[in-house]
Design a protein around this nucleic acid. Structure first.
Lengths: 366, 366
DNA sequence: CGAGTTGCTGAATCCTGAG
DNA sequence: ACTCAGGATTCAGCAACTC
């Protein structure tokens, strides 16, 4: 399924100031924003390892802000511009550390964003604390927000559960740092960018909060991890980056990425989006004849199917009739019930839930 | 080593407003503050579990604030009063969730506190997300601060390392919720306080940032977990609590605590939680790309990897999709199957079980 | 007595499309 | 904007109970 390309200029890097460039984008044109802004690390002096080698910390000009109000103003400005570009039902992710994430989180709330989760990226291989004066700083924090409390955001619940072997995905993710072959290096062998994020992190973010062909915007593109993973997963992307050199590296990197040849492999199934099949259709189609008996799993309750797709049942609580859900709830004395899984029909000698008939109908619809 | 008792009234609960009472305390009289303030959860309506039972959410008067500015003002006021009571070389801890922790962190920085770490309490048994609309909210955040950038705070580096099997203690702590016998209950069997923290959490906090006989202040004392653990570890404590009933329960609880005869014997090894690696993580990490073919040992069955870590396969029994285990079972017509050993990937000219990839990931996690 | 089953609960910002 | 109804949705730990 392709989405309208309100934004013509997808799959490219804009070089320039992200506040200005996002403000110029059409309002509400982007499905998701992923942002890895400067952390304002406030490192003082240099840090030496026990063997006296120097730790190559972040000391770039783009990470220096004169004070907290300056950082706050910058944060309000770029988040406001991102809000402009974001669709009303889109979501936004920001990653940060304790140096900046509390400023970011507060400002997100002040701007009207609605927090869905804070996510902890638990690093399996963090840098140790060389001085032994604090706990090893072994995680970073992502904040995931919708544009408002009422927004109908997208969340690939089933895909996340599948990724996690049938257990709900939690708010803490254990992933290694970006090292080895994945880490982009310059011709001198030095790392090309000091804060390159692992592709596995973006993989999970994009799979969780976008559909294929969705448009993803990254205003602090750096060496283009977001674009590389978006291309692989067949999402459209726009990157904004201030420095030509990073943009050049990112373009080369993304050009080398192969997108998945078979689109159906990235279109992960979701129960929620299946077409609705009323129970009556099964009766119309003759999959269940009027007069058929339905049972609960233990055959303690019997209901009869009527021609219009309603049920009638009788037990010690009285006589009940209505939809499969209403009658299922009534015979159990519960406020609600999923009739598709509660009611069973005779199949040979055993019972099968009526949901298998619905699945059969859904399968025929493809 | 005993410290001067500048503050005579130790080891007791003050009933009243913590802002007022902390302001009246002698300036710089407290070695450490631990605070578990209201989170301002802003819950609306009721939440039902899949079995239709009601979730007993926090709905106490003390957690209701009219808006964010009101919550911010409250936070600034109590943190300011705590700062007054805290020694210049003392430290302060605050625990919270995404609802409030960003407000707290920002205000801490605004007041001149210096962040030493943010700590993630990773809950081993959190409440699930019943509606499947977000990631399971499986952690809370603690912020640990000194009074200023220059302060000479105390950190028990060696004790923390010993607690963690000779490895540096990281900024993420895996601990269970407070349940079972530890949870205080009223005569009706209901929980006495909706947000009682586990003693193990306070144990680690107090061991990390205080010495024996240090004075610990908890301005939101509740049922007195901080006091109970402080007494056990031979720290002095002051609790402030607004509600008489909580104070009464806390007093009875702490009276029953025995302090350790030999504090140096409190070395409890941290349980290293054994890593579980879902198949989907191999896909995220790029060890197996979506679209890759997997085979049984004799290459008679082929399955394809999807982006969410599920497989699709087809044979004479039909088309199957789902987890590596489910599909492995289905293609063999068996009730169960260990997908890790059944499925193989192409490695050079031969096949290797996908379990070797899992072992690689597990090895990285140590 | 042990093994297996059922039930309860925890700081929760928890549905959605049709009419 | 609203209502109404279909029907989707849970993990770990502990305690109590059954067989």
């Amino acid at each position: 399924m392709t989405r309208p390309t309100e934004n013509t200029a997808a799959n490219r890097i804009l070089v320039g100031d992200c506040i200005q460039l996002m403000s110029q984008m059409p309002a509400g044109s982007v499905d998701m924003v992923f942002a890895d802004p400067p952390y304002n690390l406030q490192l003082s002096g240099e840090l030496l390892r026990p063997n006296h080698s120097r730790v190559d910390g972040v000391d770039e000009e783009w990470d220096r802000f004169s004070d907290l109000p300056t950082y706050d103003r910058f944060t309000r400005d770029w988040l406001g511009a991102a809000r402009h570009a974001l669709k009303d039902d889109g979501t936004l992710w920001v990653i940060g550390s304790y140096h900046n994430i509390f400023r970011v989180g507060s400002i997100l709330q002040d701007l009207g964003f609605w927090i869905l989760n804070d996510i902890v990226w638990r690093k399996s291989n963090p840098m140790p604390n060389f001085k032994g004066r604090r706990f090893t700083n072994a995680h970073e924090t992502l904040i995931w927000v919708a544009k408002s409390r009422e927004a109908k955001y997208y969340f690939a619940y089933e895909a996340m559960k599948n990724l996690n072997e049938e257990l709900q995905m939690r708010s803490d993710w254990t992933l290694p740092l970006c090292t080895g072959a994945e880490r982009l290096r310059g011709e001198d062998g030095q790392k090309a960018h000091p804060t390159q994020k692992p592709e596995a992190l973006l993989y999970r973010v994009l799979l969780a909060a976008t559909r294929p062909d969705d448009l993803v915007l990254d205003p602090f593109f750096g060496t283009g991890t977001t674009g590389a993973v978006a291309k692989q997963l067949r999402r459209r992307w726009i990157g904004i980056e201030r420095e030509h050199e990073y943009a050049r590296l990112a373009n080369a990197r993304i050009a080398a990425v192969e997108e998945l040849a078979e689109p159906e492999l990235v279109d992960v199934p979701a129960r929620r989006t299946q077409p609705r099949v009323p129970f009556g259709h099964l009766v119309e189609r003759g999959l269940l004849k009027p007069g058929t008996n339905l049972f609960d799993q233990r055959r303690r309750v019997i209901a009869k199917v009527r021609a219009d797709g309603t049920l009638v049942a009788q037990n010690h609580l009285g006589q009940h009739s209505g939809s499969i859900h209403k009658v299922g709830a009534a015979v159990q004395g519960l406020p609600a019930c999923n009739g598709w899984t509660y009611w069973h029909f005779q199949e040979g000698k055993s019972l099968a839930p009526i949901d298998v008939l619905r699945q059969k109908v859904i399968a025929e619809m493809h």
